[in-house]
Amino acid sequence: MNLNVAVIGPSDLVDKVVEVGSVFQELNMIPAPYPHEQDTLEVVARVREQGDILLFTGPIPYQLALDSEPGLPMVHVQYSGTTLYKVLFDFYRTQLLEMDGEIRISVDVLLRHELEEQLDELGLVRRQIYVKPYSAGTGHEDLVAFHYELWSQGLVAATVTCVTSVYQQLVELGVPAFRVVPTQSSIRDVLNRALLEGKSLRLSSTQIAIGILNIDHFERVVKEAASDYEVQRKKIILQQILIDFGEETQSLIKWTDSGEVSFITTRGIIEQATRKFEQAPLLLEVMERLQWKASIGIGLGRTANEA
Rank of each mutant, 00 (worst) to 15 (best):
N2P: 12
N2I: 11
V7G: 08
V7D: 04
I8P: 08
G9K: 12
L13T: 11
V17E: 05
L27P: 05
P33V: 03
T40S: 04
A45Y: 12
R46W: 05
E49M: 14
E49D: 14
Q50G: 10
P59R: 08
Y62L: 02
S68R: 11
V75W: 00
H76M: 06
Q78P: 01
Q78N: 05
Y79H: 14
G81T: 09
D90F: 08
F91I: 15
Q95G: 10
M99C: 01
G101P: 08
R104V: 08
S106P: 06
S106H: 05
V107E: 04
L110C: 13
R112G: 05
E114G: 14
E116N: 15
D120M: 12
V125D: 04
P133T: 14
V144K: 03
E149H: 13
E149P: 06
V156C: 05
V160T: 02
C162A: 12
C162F: 02
Q169L: 02
L173Q: 11
F178C: 12
T183K: 14
S185T: 13
R193Y: 08
A194G: 15
K199T: 03
S205C: 07
I208T: 13
H217R: 14
K223S: 05
A225L: 15
A225Y: 08
D228G: 12
I237R: 07
I237A: 02
Q240H: 08
D244C: 08
G246T: 06
G246M: 05
E248Y: 01
Q250W: 12
K254Y: 07
V261L: 04
S262A: 07
I264A: 09
T265D: 10
T266I: 09
Q272Y: 06
R275A: 09
R275D: 04
E278K: 15
E278Q: 14
L282Y: 02
L282V: 08
L284D: 06
M287I: 09
E288Q: 15
E288C: 10
R289T: 11
Q291R: 11
S295I: 01
L300H: 01
T303E: 00
A307V: 02
A307I: 10
